[in-house]
């Protein structure tokens, strides 16, 4: 009896010691020096691990920040300027301030204005359906409506609007990490500067077809008529391939282009309602308020 107790105690003790020895040797042999600075920087970062900075996670980004001499081209979109300032202080390096941006969906092709001409059967992800064909509508540039962007968003800042079949960005939650931009096979989502009070004016269309064809596919398509170009005082609008684009760097948010657009394809958000003198634009502004949901 005592023998067996003693035996087991000895055996276990021996095994334990052996294991401890192995662990000790292995940890010595494979010791990796870890810059404590990386840990400190990592703590400053938002720990969202969204990969919006281009690194696979916050830890990897912290490593990059610590190791690179010049960090002026590194930016954490989630933490924004504040976090980057703290990081710069901690590291004693320089950062460049960036304008905060927010994701916008550049397609207004709801089921009503952009009729479906075919039915798609297959896995409901944009990546696959874009590979198979140009989509259920006649517009080969617009939103496919399968919500890859929503699935990619790690901050619950997007949802699919059941009524329109289009994704909606909840501006307050958007960290501009850019995952949705990457997920969209049609490049519909763009990061645009979040100017004061989140005022934005942008073209909600990417259709490069000629006017008539674009309009037949979708009644709110940009037809490249260049009316907006004519009224823009700052030359912020370029028209290429029958499609207008408003460059946020030049746009002063004067709103002149919005009412002249014959297809209502220019979107303005968060502006106060217009004065009575232009009823068309007024209803449009109202529409937009509803469409961008969160902006209210």
């Amino acid at each position: 009896m005592t023998d067996s107790i003693l035996n087991s105690v000895l055996l276990l003790a021996g095994l334990g010691t052996l294991a401890a020895l192995i662990l000790y040797l292995v940890s010595k042999r494979f010791y990796v020096f870890d810059d404590p600075m990386i840990g400190r920087v990592e703590e400053l970062l938002p720990a969202a691990n969204c990969a919006g900075c281009g690194s696979p996670g916050c830890r990897a980004f912290a490593e990059k920040l610590v190791k690179s001499e010049d960090i002026s081209d590194l930016f954490c979109p989630v933490g924004g300027n504040e976090v980057m300032k703290l990081v710069a202080e901690a590291l004693g390096k320089e950062v460049v301030e960036k304008d905060p941006t927010v994701a916008v969906v550049r397609c207004q092709g709801s089921c009503e204005v952009r009729p479906k001409t075919t039915v798609y059967q297959g896995p409901r992800t944009c990546a696959i359906s874009a590979l198979i064909y140009s989509g259920e509508t006649d517009c080969q540039y617009g939103c496919l409506g399968d919500g890859d962007c929503v699935a990619a968003c790690k901050f619950d800042a997007m949802y699919m609007d059941e009524a329109t079949g289009l994704p909606v960005v909840i501006t307050d939650k958007c960290t501009s990490c850019g995952m949705c931009v990457e997920a969209c096979p049609r490049d519909i989502i763009e990061m645009r500067p979040k100017k004061k009070r989140d005022l934005k004016i942008y073209v909600g269309c990417l259709n490069e077809e000629k006017g008539g064809i674009a309009k037949r596919a979708c009644s709110v398509a940009c037809i490249g008529c260049s009316k907006c170009l004519d009224v823009c005082p700052k030359e912020a609008i370029v028209i290429e391939n029958n499609l207008a684009y408003i460059d946020p760097a030049y746009c002063t948010l004067c709103r002149k282009c919005v009412p002249v657009c014959p297809t209502h394809s220019i979107i303005e958000t968060n502006f106060p309602p217009r004065k009575e003198k232009n009823p068309v634009a007024d209803t449009l502004a109202g529409d937009q308020g509803v469409k961008s949901g969160s902006d209210a």
Binding site: K116, T117, T118, V119, Y120, Q121, I128, I132
Partner: peptide, 8 residues
């Protein structure tokens, strides 16, 4: 009834 498109 619009035509169906799916992969092979």
């Amino acid at each position: 009834a619009p035509i169906i498109v799916s992969a092979s």
